[in-house]
């Protein structure tokens, strides 16, 4: 049974790229283009890893992460931020405030990114 990764990003091309990359690596991928869409999807699915863009309209990835963590059954969900935000403070917000397990900086290089995702799925940092 292959693992399921939910990717949330308002940029569809980017989403498509991620989807293709991860599918090539043998993973199942669900995508959402907004926080609301993601939340609604989470009623039906339980992804093994959730990748969130930070800068999205209406709800930021950080807020979304916090909301997900508060949802029933998602307390221990593995969430990673996937963002252009690269400053130290951004990473701190991701890991400390929003409860994400990891912070991946865009742009991504395919091999490195796929390796990181695999690592997060196998032994996510707590």
């Amino acid at each position: 049974m292959s693992k399921l990764v939910l990717v949330v990003d308002d940029e569809e091309d980017f989403l498509y790229q991620i989807k293709r990359m991860l599918e090539r690596a043998g993973l199942n991928v669900a995508t959402a283009t907004s926080g609301m869409e993601a939340l609604s999807m989470l009623k039906d699915i339980s992804p093994d890893l959730i990748l969130l863009d930070v800068m999205m309209p209406k709800m930021t990835g950080w807020d979304l992460a916090k909301t997900i963590k508060e949802m029933e059954g998602f307390k221990d969900a593995t969430i990673a931020m996937l963002t252009v935000k690269s400053e130290l403070e951004d990473k701190v917000i991701s890991l400390e405030d929003s409860g994400a397990a990891w912070h991946i900086t865009k742009p991504i290089e395919m091999k490195k990114f796929v390796n990181t995702v695999k690592w997060l799925l196998e032994s996510p940092p707590k």
Binding site: D13, F14, E109
Partner: peptide, 16 residues
């Protein structure tokens, strides 16, 4: 960000 990001998409998709 905005330039490298789409470039990354191009590069990655092309690689795929």
């Amino acid at each position: 960000h905005d330039l490298l990001n789409p470039l990354g998409v191009v590069k990655n998709v092309f690689e795929i």
